[in-house]
Amino acid sequence: MLQRRTTLLLLPLLLLAAGAARGQGAPAPFETLTVSVGQSFNVNRGELFHDFWRFRYGWEGEFSTPFYFGYIELGGVLHRYANTVGTVPDFDALQLYAGWGPMLRLGQVQAQAGFRIGNHYMAFAEPSNTGRRNESELLLGLLARVQVRLVGGLGLHFSGTYTYTFTFEELRLLFATVGLSYELDSPRWLKGFLR
């Protein structure tokens, strides 16, 4: 089931690549800046991870801007997990990432797909017998997102994200996110810096 869902994320990436690369409705690189916040939910089950922990809640925040052939994003997601087995501690996870993907604008609707690369930082509520309280590992993700412009620069977005963390026992998690975003013209100094 998980594989089928992630295929659904992969497909838009490939489809959007061609359309977005032709520059349909795409603004110039770094021309605008979009700030997004949202709440995310872990929607897959059945992984080894879920034998020990359950998802409590998660918040996501990011900046994105048009880039060559699409957009780039920088952001972070905070997830909180509670144990389901008494022998393991609760923990908070912070995913810090950079991403890129093609973007397509069709009127008031904007479609994005892409990948993310970043760090999955985990802070545990209790020390282990080795005294370690945190862990950090490489994270890759696939993303599909639809954003609808409501009024002015304000928009509503829905996204699905599949993340893969390269721990020895792999973490494969699928998230759904709903949130608000606001798009504004990039300040001149920021455009100068980024270009």
Binding site: L48, F49, F52, W53, Y81, T87, V88, P89, F91, N119, H120, M122, F124, S128, T130, R132, E135, S136, E137, L138, T165, F166, T167, F168, E169, L171
Partner: peptide
């Protein structure tokens, strides 16, 4: 960072 850390499984019998 080289991959292969135990991650949260550090606290389980799957610890590496």
């Amino acid at each position: 960072n080289e991959v292969g850390d135990p991650g949260p499984f550090l606290y389980t019998d799957r610890a590496t």
